[in-house]
Each structure stands twice: as structure tokens, then as C-alpha cells.
């Protein structure tokens, strides 16, 4: 079962990464990036890197995303590509 979960996470990570860079709505992209970070964090926790996973959860999925959102709020949501 665990490898199935693993495989799903792997697939989702790639999907999220692609979505992040293709979404035209920057806010959406930032949110998807948060999801991506969180999936990454799951992946690392599963690899035994609990500290890294914890950090990624707080930083990547948390603060980083918030900073992105803050910056996007202050600038523009629109993106041409």
C-alpha cells in the first residue's frame, strides 16, 4: 500500500510543479506551489528526514507561500505565461 501512496505523491508533485509554472493566475500558482511544498514535505518525512520535512512544512508551505501571496497582492495577479 505504502508504495502506492508514494507513487501518488510522486505523480502529484510533478503535476503541481507543472501547474505552478503554467497557471496564468499568479495567486493560484502560489497556492499550488504551497501544495507542492506540502507534498514534498510528505515525501521527505517518508524518507526519514523529519527535520527537513518539518522545516519545509513551516517554510515552504507556510511562510514562503504567504510571502508570495503578500507580494502578489501588492503587485498583480495577472501573468502572460
Amino acid at each position: 500500500m505504502i508504495w502506492l501512496l508514494d507513487l501518488i505523491i510522486l505523480a502529484l508533485v510533478v503535476v503541481c510543479a507543472v501547474a505552478t509554472i503554467t497557471l496564468r493566475d499568479l495567486l493560484g500558482a502560489a497556492i499550488v506551489f504551497g501544495v507542492y511544498s506540502f507534498l514534498m514535505c510528505l515525501l521527505w518525512a517518508e524518507m526519514g528526514a523529519v527535520d527537513v520535512a518539518f522545516t519545509e512544512a513551516t517554510v515552504g508551505a507556510g511562510v514562503s507561500t504567504i510571502l508570495f501571496i503578500a507580494a502578489i497582492f501588492r503587485t498583480t495577479r495577472r501573468s502572460k505565461d
Partner: peptide
């Protein structure tokens, strides 16, 4: 346990955020 200065600091910062 997992954690340390960095993670804790981020969490503290997150509370203010």
C-alpha cells in the same frame, strides 16, 4: 524531537503573521 531554532523561530514568526 524534530525541530530546533529554525523551525521554532518560523512558527513564532508565523503567529505574528
Amino acid at each position: 524531537s524534530p525541530g530546533g531554532g529554525f523551525q521554532g523561530g518560523v512558527i513564532l514568526g508565523a503567529s505574528f503573521i
